[in-house]
Design a protein around this nucleic acid. Structure first.
Lengths: 148, 148
DNA sequence: ATAAATGCAAAGGGTTTGCAAAGGC
DNA sequence: GCCTTTGCAAACCCTTTGCATTTAT
């Protein structure tokens, strides 16, 4: 299951650079590139362990670095004290909505935000590189008193 | 220099709760409540050391907690791997512009953002609590090739 | 006198690094 | 075979905690 379109792109990226295509690397890529949610490094390791593939923590972090460098994965920081990662989809940029009760993360886009941040940066003499917006709130389910 | 309007408010807050007004506490409050920039815990400790007042790291963190609890200081997370703190001014809410080259932080307000984030949250069924926007870029000085 | 704060050092969580062994090309 | 990656453990950074001692009230 580690040889479809997405993982192939990673394999190709490695090959182009004459970097070894190893089993741990592809296993990590398989998890992360197909992720439907935002994984932490620890969760990736746990997911692999659950699949019977044990990889060292250092390798997980080092492979994430490679994946980020390849542009196939992007890093997120929701202020939880650790980082999360998600596959870089075709969405040019999106913001996050985080439930402070259950931790669920939803995504949304807003074109205006892109323009606004560029304008604000320019008005201050900054060359804008990127921005990060996280809205914290309580999701519908948690408002109903469910979930932890 | 630790007995002006701001530090007095902290002193009063402590007294109301029968909490000891100690020298280390007031020294930390003096630095943080008059800060013109966003201090990290380490920087506060260094600033105090530079003033000849040595306080333990744990005390810095514990006092910051108290200051945050008092509402006189607010915590910021710019994704640097550590937290920064600033005095809670009268500004209801403001966003941050961070220079990725020299680390300088500028602030700005944008009323629209408040409304926008509320609308987005509601449209997803979230009860909005707060939001955090950081724009990353390179400041004018750093664009000129100066600074590190 | 009493309750709380201090300092130190040790522990903690997330992440990185050094190095010998393993593995891709 | 050469060069990179791996795994492990130790180191790292920021932050918290345990505990005996000092301090404010």
């Amino acid at each position: 299951m580690a040889d479809d379109a997405v993982t192939d792109r990673f394999r190709a990226w490695l090959r182009e650079r004459n970097l070894p295509v190893t089993a741990p690397r592809m296993a990590i890529a398989d998890v992360l590139l197909h992720a439907e949610r935002h994984y932490s490094a620890e969760e990736i390791e746990a997911e692999l362990a659950a699949r019977g593939t044990k990889v060292g923590t250092a390798t997980v972090y080092r492979t994430i670095d490679v994946l980020v460098e390849s542009g196939l994965v992007v890093e997120r920081d929701f202020g939880e004290g650790f980082r999360r990662f998600e596959p870089a989809r075709d969405i040019p940029h999106h913001e996050h909505l985080l439930c402070t009760s259950c931790g669920r993360v939803e995504e949304f886009r807003d074109e205006r935000l892109e323009r606004m941040t560029t304008l604000v940066a320019e008005s201050r003499g900054f060359a804008r590189q990127r921005h990060r917006l996280v809205i914290y709130g309580v999701c519908r389910d948690c408002q109903r008193g469910a979930v932890t």
